[in-house]
């Protein structure tokens, strides 16, 4: 049984008894149950290979790309069961940002921001498009840096700028939740701290679920933290509580650097 009890009212996301296996009988995510709070940053921590990415990808069903994947349990996003949603709708509601910045190399900065609309063949009036681009880039504090080079390739930007562009691309869809998988692990400290500040600001309007292998990052910016180990959700609670008085021995050992 899980070593925690945390009540979250009106969660943006409800994960119920979620198990995911790539190979039969071996669970990468093992019976995870958790509610995610709206308008806050929730961090998922744990040693490499403990199932953080798999859990995150189950939420927008990106894990279905793998052929033999098996999923049990339910995920409810804003009251809707994600398994009943068309993928396009689900992925509009749950935007994803990856470890390595991945703007589309053939597209301009402008087109990268509205790529979700463009690639899906959703036509927007020029005025609305401009608005979405400006709002999304402003939200990620990139507008002032790129407003004069909007039609240049996104791949000319620095790594940190590219990652903010990728966050803007997710924001353009006005998602309910933003899923980030170690978004700063490929970035330098300055770019990292910019993204951290950004995430704290973004939680006013969005709910953020972020995988991080960096404990101090979780401590700095998250309101809630999960600790996973071998596919299991070992501990989940307010970040402050978890870092000051962890309930589980494994959490404590991880936080004190005994493994990981």
């Amino acid at each position: 049984m899980n070593n925690f009890s945390i009540k979250i009212k009106d969660p943006v996301l409800s994960i119920r008894n979620l198990s995911v296996s790539y190979d039969k009988g071996k669970y990468a995510v093992d019976n995870v149950t958790a509610d995610i709070k709206r308008n806050s940053v929730t961090a998922i921590m744990g040693p490499s290979g403990c199932g953080k990415s798999t859990l995150l990808r189950a939420i927008n069903r990106m894990h279905e790309l793998y052929e033999n994947i098996e999923t049990k349990g339910d995920i409810i996003l804003n009251g809707n069961d994600i398994s009943d949603m068309p993928t396009i709708k689900l992925r509009r509601m749950a935007g994803m940002v990856f470890q390595h910045p991945n703007p589309f190399p053939t597209m301009s900065i402008y087109d990268n921001v509205i790529a979700g609309y463009k690639l899906n063949g959703i036509r927007l009036k020029k005025k609305l498009r401009d608005e979405i681009v400006e709002r999304s880039l402003t939200d990620v504090t990139l507008w002032d840096e790129v407003k004069d080079t909007l039609y240049k390739k996104g791949s000319f930007l620095s790594g940190g700028q590219q990652q903010r562009l990728c966050i803007a691309r997710a924001l353009a869809f006005n998602p309910e939740v933003i899923l980030l998988d170690e978004p700063t692990s490929a970035l330098d400290p300055v770019a990292t701290s910019k993204i951290e500040d950004l995430l704290v600001k973004l939680k006013e309007n969005y709910s953020i679920l972020m995988v991080t292998h960096n404990m101090s990052q979780a401590a700095r910016i998250s309101d809630y933290s999960m600790f996973m180990y071998l596919g299991e959700l070992v501990e989940y609670g307010k970040t402050k509580d978890m870092f000051t008085k962890p309930k589980d021995r494994r959490t404590e050992e991880y936080l004190t650097g005994k493994f990981g």
Binding site: R91, F104, R169
Partner: peptide
């Protein structure tokens, strides 16, 4: 990662091939 970026935007697979 480029492929994943497109899929994460809900773009169907055949469109990812043709348009990305």
């Amino acid at each position: 990662t480029i492929k994943e970026a497109a899929l994460a935007l809900g773009v169907p697979y055949y469109k990812v091939i043709i348009r990305v």
